[in-house]
């Protein structure tokens, strides 16, 4: 198990909180809520160690399209980068629904 954290600049406020996903095999859960400051913060807990660079690449890409000041908690159980991006985009979709 490994814990990672990342910070990204944000441009707009996040109004509500959303929860998607499940900590199941090859899957993850995402808890997204308003950040306490003006930046976006991501706290990752993952069952697979040694993939910090891959997590950074996935989150870098996500934050080119999402500019909300969100506090995001990710609890991961071995999801592939594609599944991680899909879950993050599902959270954003739920946020805007």
């Amino acid at each position: 198990m490994e814990r990672l954290s990342f910070t990204y600049p944000a441009r707009e406020a996040v109004a509500r909180r959303v929860h998607v996903g499940v900590v199941g095999s090859g899957d993850l859960e995402v808890l997204l809520e308003p950040s306490a400051d003006e930046d976006a913060h991501v706290a990752v807990t993952t069952s697979v160690e040694g993939f910090a660079t891959v997590w950074k690449h996935v989150l870098d890409r996500f934050f080119t399209r999402f500019e909300g000041a969100a506090a995001i908690e990710i609890n991961d159980f071995g999801a592939t980068p594609g599944v991680v991006l899909l879950r993050l985009e599902q959270a954003v979709e739920a946020l805007r629904a």
């Binding site: 909180r17 859960e29 808890l31």
Partner: peptide
């Protein structure tokens, strides 16, 4: 007592298992 209340298992992380919120 939903996920944002974060009533997680205190025991799983001690055994290297990721806990759900």
């Amino acid at each position: 007592a939903g996920p944002f209340d974060r009533l997680k298992s205190p025991w799983l992380p001690l055994q290297g298992v990721v806990a759900q919120a």
